[in-house]
Design a protein around this nucleic acid. Structure first.
Lengths: 215, 215
DNA sequence: TAGATTGTTAATCGATTAACAATC
DNA sequence: TAGATTGTTAATCGATTAACAATC
């Protein structure tokens, strides 16, 4: 019953959301069952790869038939931890921070509810941005403990990122979503995931440049 | 002189921006030279990996010394195509679209200038969002050709993504940055890069859930 | 010179893909 | 039943890491 937690590979975890959105998008078509072949064709993936990815969620399929569609949706969601709402704090109310505060899909699609923002700029403190109250960073530890918030998003300038991470760790935050380019040093029981917009762009613009000059 | 364009691996292209930001962040420290060991320590990477990544840019180092710091910055930037500004169009002025329109770092850091937005909702057409004019999607082909815009960002609902991609391809767009969950079918001379916020979150929330239940 | 670093070739590791028995 | 699919083990492929000669 309890998740065996062999912890799937990053590659698998990156593909599961794709399957999930696809399954949801065809949910209205009243398909009772769906096979790996079916899913793999949508994405051009190898069917075995899809099967292995799905197996990580613990679902058991039926030979010749496939997987029960709504069951599969639920299994992926709970495997990703998206079946319940996790509250989160966001630090850094700059350009990127506001962007993230305003992105509503996190709550509706991914079970992530950013309940408050933090900054060290007094002119921002006390205001509301996208209906989220902005507090001074010094209030984070107390609030994190009181509200039992375990996830923190970091959207501060490079030089401040480690300092903010230290505050979060001290406050009992267990998962940090780091949007800065700074690699963070944290205790090993704290999980860090780095997301940077520019990563995807690097691949795009490099290939775009390489193409015409190619031999 | 011309880029050999053996086209670096995705893994390499994802790490290069990290090195670039790091190099920029220490640029004021007046370091003339920097070594792979130096960079690798900042990120906890293998030094050989850093050396191979850097070698892709075509820079030649000096044994015992390392690489000329400002030269390395320039080489990475031009390898990524970030040394000049590329104009881009954005389609889909929903929650995510506005978010992307307002994110100024694309222009200042990554040489990507989103010059206009497009939507099929007439109520949005003609307005300005973040100082960017919003046009009807039907105007895209004409404007793309006139302004010679080669990059398009897709931030529309899943079901519309392929349709928008088709319009972009037809309009001569050569690089598509797809923020939807839909896999796009395009001719092979068009480059697609998929970026989804939720990917990083999936890794974070899965590991966060797996941890306490772990044996 | 000796030590440190580059550039490159070889070995290792892990993810993807192929093969195949079991199943409804 | 025959065909299609699952679940799993084996083979392949590519990226990471190790080893080492050349260099200033």
């Amino acid at each position: 019953m309890v998740n065996k937690s062999k912890s799937a590979s990053d590659s698998t975890l990156k593909r599961l959301p794709l399957y999930l959105y696809f399954l949801k998008s065809i949910a209205d078509e009243n398909l009772k069952f769906i096979s790996c072949t079916n899913i793999s064709q949508e994405f051009g993936f190898d069917p075995t790869q899809v099967r292995k990815d799905i197996a990580e969620t613990g679902i058991v399929g039926i030979a010749k038939i496939g997987y029960k569609a709504d069951d599969l949706i639920n299994k992926i969601e709970s495997f990703l931890g998206w079946n319940k709402v996790n509250e989160a704090f966001l630090v850094g109310i700059g350009d990127l921070g506001k962007t993230l505060l305003g992105y509503r899909n996190f709550r509706t699609e991914n079970g992530l509810d950013i309940v408050a923002g933090f900054d060290n700029d007094d002119s921002r403190v006390g205001s509301y941005i996208c209906h989220k109250r902005i507090f001074h960073i010094s209030k984070l530890p107390e609030l994190a403990k009181r509200m039992d918030v375990k996830i923190g998003l970091i959207a501060v300038p490079e030089k401040k990122a480690q300092e903010v991470a230290d505050i979060m760790v001290e406050a009992g935050i267990k998962g940090i979503w780091n949007f800065s380019m700074t690699p963070l040093k944290v205790p090993e029981d704290v999980i860090v995931e780095n997301t940077r917009f520019s990563t995807g762009l690097a691949i795009l613009t490099n290939r775009l440049n390489a193409r015409p000059k190619s031999d």
